[in-house]
Design a protein around this nucleic acid. Structure first.
Lengths: 118, 118
DNA sequence: ATATTGCATAACTAAATGGTTATATATTGA
DNA sequence: TCAATATATAACCATTTAGTTATGCAATAT
């Protein structure tokens, strides 16, 4: 997990994830490798369109492709997906920590108020 | 955590995250609420540009805004960020599970090979 | 009462995105 | 050898994005 993820990498990764077709392709690939035609089959979309989506996913590092004869085998890149997840996770944790601090603060304030009322 | 996150929600959430300025704003907000001018300060960008970014973040549900006098207080939405993180996490887990199965398969195949050599 | 501050909105622009069809290329099958 | 298959590339188009400047408007300060 070579942190930190560069800003440019995050740009392209999140952009790649911001499309339902690409997320669906990625979901399919979590089940196992597939070639382009396999991936295109579920969609009512031209083959070049799918190739474009695969280009986007590959540029984002979320998938890799290797030529096997006239096929091109696509594979989800576990490590890249873990990295993006990790990045988001740190944000979630920061917010949660902040939220808990705030909770604590409110608690303290309430107690203080009671003190003052006595 | 009201799963599942709709496809449209994921579209706008990931799109919102696919921009360094917006991620930076979000990072700032993990430290605590801020108004628009505070958020705009670090950037060499016009105020309307920041307002647009905030609109994108709000449409994605990643922040909320409330009017306080002539200020507008912005807050990171912990729950929404958790949801997106959770969504990605399921992918990561699916891939990891698959990866481990593959590992096991390779192991089995190696053993089988040795059997056959005897 | 008037000026200033903190925003939002409108109108515009350049570039990027997501799709199309037509075509090229390499590999495999008959 | 020739046809079919799997995929990529090119050229094009409509829409969206990310920025700009100019302006409007409500809340606060003087």
């Amino acid at each position: 997990m070579q942190y930190p993820l560069s800003s440019e990498k995050l740009d392209v990764a999140f952009m790649a994830l911001a499309d339902a077709t690409r997320r669906s392709i990625l979901a399919r690939l979590t089940l196992g490798d597939a070639n382009v035609m396999d991936l295109a089959a579920p969609f009512s979309m031209s083959q070049p369109a799918i190739t474009k989506h695969l280009n986007v996913l590959e540029r984002a590092g979320l998938i890799s492709r290797t030529k096997v004869g006239r096929l091109r085998r696509c594979r989800a890149e576990r490590e890249a997906i873990s990295e993006v997840t990790g990045w988001l996770e740190t944000y979630r944790q920061a917010l949660t920590a902040n939220f808990q601090r705030l909770d604590l603060l409110l608690e303290t304030m309430k107690k203080q108020e009671k003190e003052n009322q006595r």
